[in-house]
Amino acid sequence: MRIQERQLNVAIVTYNSEQYIEALLESLPAAAGQLVLRTVLVDNGSIDATVEVAKRFPVDVIETGVNLGYSGGINVARQRLGPGNLAILNPDLTLERASLEILVAALEGSVGIVAPRVIDEEGTLFTHLRREPTVLNAIGESLFGARFPRRPAALADTIREPASYSVPQTVDWAGAPAWVVSSACDQAVGAWDSETYFLYSEETDYARRARDAGFTVLYEPAATVVHHGGGSGFSDWQLALMSRNRIRYFDRFSRRAASKLAFRVAVVAGHGLRAVSPAHRAAARSIVLGRPVGSRSLPPWAIKNESGASR
Rank of each mutant, 00 (worst) to 15 (best):
R2G: 10
Q7R: 15
Y15Q: 09
A23S: 11
L28H: 00
P29V: 07
A30M: 13
A31S: 14
A32W: 10
L37W: 07
L41I: 08
V42Q: 04
A49L: 10
R56S: 10
V59L: 05
V61F: 04
V66Y: 05
G69L: 00
R80Q: 15
N90Y: 03
P91I: 06
D92V: 07
L93R: 04
T94V: 11
R97H: 15
A98P: 02
A106Y: 03
L107V: 01
E108K: 05
G109K: 06
S110G: 00
V111W: 05
V111S: 07
P116V: 08
P116G: 13
V118P: 09
V135P: 10
A138L: 09
G140W: 13
L143T: 12
R147Q: 09
R150E: 15
R151Y: 08
D157K: 10
E161M: 08
S164T: 07
T170R: 04
P177M: 05
A178D: 11
S182V: 05
A188G: 13
A191C: 07
D193C: 07
F198A: 01
T204F: 09
F215R: 12
V217P: 00
Y219I: 13
V225F: 12
G229Q: 00
G229S: 03
G233N: 02
W237V: 02
A240L: 03
L241T: 02
S243K: 00
R246E: 08
R246Q: 15
R248Y: 02
Y249A: 15
F250I: 14
D251L: 08
A262R: 13
V267S: 01
A269G: 04
A284H: 04
S286M: 01
I287K: 06
V288Q: 07
L289F: 15
G294Y: 12
P299C: 05
P300V: 01
K304V: 07
G308W: 02
